[in-house]
């Protein structure tokens, strides 16, 4: 479902330094797989996710989503993005719109659904993430955990084939992490293809098929969550795990 081949991405900072965010990066994610990416800050995890829906552009290499080369000349990137839901660390709900409006906006203008149909879908999803009672509230009136659950519903409303989570629980107070992880676990168990950047190893152990450890824009080690708990091989992996566990 997702095939990344030899992707390179280098940023130029304001003082003209070069930062290699992805170095000859290749990965393969199958339909229905839940893959967790871990790694120290600055290791290129967000860059990888953002290149998957072209919020950032790779410098070279290829990325296929459902066998479509998303960097191909004839590709309509908006069509590709409809199929890939993205959940951000800082939620990024639209603050001028109510919860309901947040969830129906893209359905109406991108998926071209009728308002009544969009509302029906939204209600189902808000119910699923357990926040239907806040449908007419504004994001500012919600806790972080509630906002993140709305953001997940908003992404799901497009009926994406893939969901990406970029440290979706990192900005939350500890007592709210669980409620968001629960929603993510539910999705994983329903068979959603998920690309998850997180340091929640409990989540990884419970639902992930694979864990990938990244550093300096490269994959250092990959295996099951169990592998990382019991016998990580590389020193960098061990050092990192000792910091987060």
């Amino acid at each position: 479902m997702i095939k990344v081949k030899n992707a390179f991405k280098t940023f130029r900072t304001h003082d003209r330094r070069e930062v290699k965010a992805l170095v000859d990066f290749s990965v393969h994610i199958k339909k229905g797989e839940v893959v967790v990416f871990i790694g120290p800050s600055g290791s290129g995890k967000s860059t990888f996710l953002r290149c998957l829906n072209r919020l950032e552009e790779i410098d070279s290499g290829q990325i296929f989503i459902n066998d479509v080369d998303i960097y191909g000349k004839k590709v309509n990137i908006n069509k590709v993005r409809e199929e890939i839901g993205m959940v951000f660390q800082l939620f990024n709900l639209f603050p001028h719109k109510t919860v309901m409006e947040n969830v129906i906006l893209a359905q109406q203008i991108v998926r071209k659904r009728r308002r009544s149909e969009a509302i029906e879908i939204a209600k189902d999803l808000l119910h699923k993430v357990n926040i239907l009672e806040k449908e007419s509230n504004y994001p500012s009136q919600l806790s972080g955990g509630q906002q993140q659950r709305v953001a997940i519903a908003r992404a799901l409303a497009m009926h994406p084939k893939i969901m990406m989570f970029d440290e979706a629980t990192s900005a939350l107070d500890p007592e709210m992490i669980g409620e968001v992880l629960d929603v993510m676990k539910k999705l994983a168990k329903e068979g959603m293809t998920m690309v998850v950047v997180t340091h929640e190893m409990g989540f990884a152990r419970e639902v992930s098929d694979r864990v990938v450890f990244m550093d300096s824009g490269q994959i250092i080690e990959e295996g099951t969550a169990e592998h990382f708990f019991t016998n990580p091989i590389h020193d960098r992996t061990k050092l990192f795990l000792s910091q987060i566990l």
Binding site: N53, L55, N78, K79, R81, E82, I84, G85, M86, F88, L90, N92, L93, F94, L105, A106, I109, V110, R111, A151, R154, A155, M158
Partner: peptide, 11 residues
């Protein structure tokens, strides 16, 4: 992040 959220929804 607002622009990114909107674009990631396919707008």
């Amino acid at each position: 992040g607002q622009m990114e959220a909107a674009r990631s929804l396919g707008m």
